[in-house]
């Protein structure tokens, strides 16, 4: 599903170069639940942005679902983000002036889905995260946990194969954070491939596999035995 072959991301900062990713090779199977951990600045977000087709690798190859996406046009990348990937961000990244329903409909809007179908699918998606009663609320009228659930509903609405979550629990208390992780685990059981970034070890170990980054390199990978116990 996701195949990194010796991927580098290098930021040129004046005289010296920052190796945000320093030769990462990573393979993620369809249906996996992988958590990426590491110290701050270790390259987790950089890695996630490349997986999410928001950014391009400086060197190396990235194959997504059998297709080399390292150097596609911005339109093709937009299409892949729209249909194959769903994002969940630490800061929720909802559009403040759109209500919950409109926010969730947005990916479908860019697909050109008809308004009736958009509405139906967005409602379904919101029901999935238990927010059917907040359709007309603005994001600012919701709690952090609720906003994060809206952003998960938005990530789900176009039925993407892969859901990418970059510190989705970072702004939440531990109880709400655990709810979000439970939701992600459920989605994984339904067949979505999930990549989760977190620096909370107790959350990371709930994935099926954990990858540890340090200074842009993978330093440890381990498969969780307890993953089946959910």
């Amino acid at each position: 599903m996701i195949d990194f072959c010796d991927v580098y991301k290098i930021y040129q900062m004046g005289d010296y170069a920052v190796h945000a990713l320093d030769g990462v090779s990573l393979h993620i199977e369809e249906g996996e639940f992988v958590s990426i951990v590491g110290a701050s600045g270790s390259g987790k977000s950089t890695c996630m942005n490349i997986i999410g087709c928001l950014d391009e690798p400086s060197y190396g190859q990235y194959i997504l679902n059998g297709r080399d996406v390292s150097h596609l046009s911005s339109n093709e990348l937009a299409n892949i983000r729209n249909r194959m990937l769903g994002f969940v961000f630490q800061q929720y990244n909802l559009i403040a002036k759109l209500n919950v329903l409109e926010n969730v409909e947005l990916p479908l809007l860019y697909q050109g889905v008809s308004s009736a179908e958009r509405h139906a699918r967005a409602c379904e998606s919101l029901a999935r995260v238990d927010l059917s009663d907040k359709l007309k609320n603005l994001p600012s009228q919701l709690s952090g946990g609720q906003q994060q659930r809206v952003s998960i509903a938005r990530a789900l609405v176009s039925q993407p194969k892969v859901i990418l979550a970059d510190e989705p629990t970072g702004a939440l208390d531990s109880k709400t954070g655990q709810d979000v992780i439970n939701l992600l685990r459920q989605l994984n059981q339904e067949g979505h491939t999930i990549v989760l970034i977190t620096h909370e070890e107790n959350l990371a170990v709930q994935a099926k596999r954990m990858v540890r980054l340090s200074d842009g390199k993978i330093v440890e990978q381990c498969v969780m035995e307890n993953s089946a116990s959910f």
Partner: peptide, 16 residues
């Protein structure tokens, strides 16, 4: 700008 970034991350094309 941020709104544009969000829209792009969920699949808005340049044309959109």
């Amino acid at each position: 700008t941020r709104e544009i970034g969000i829209r792009k991350s969920i699949g808005a094309k340049q044309r959109d």
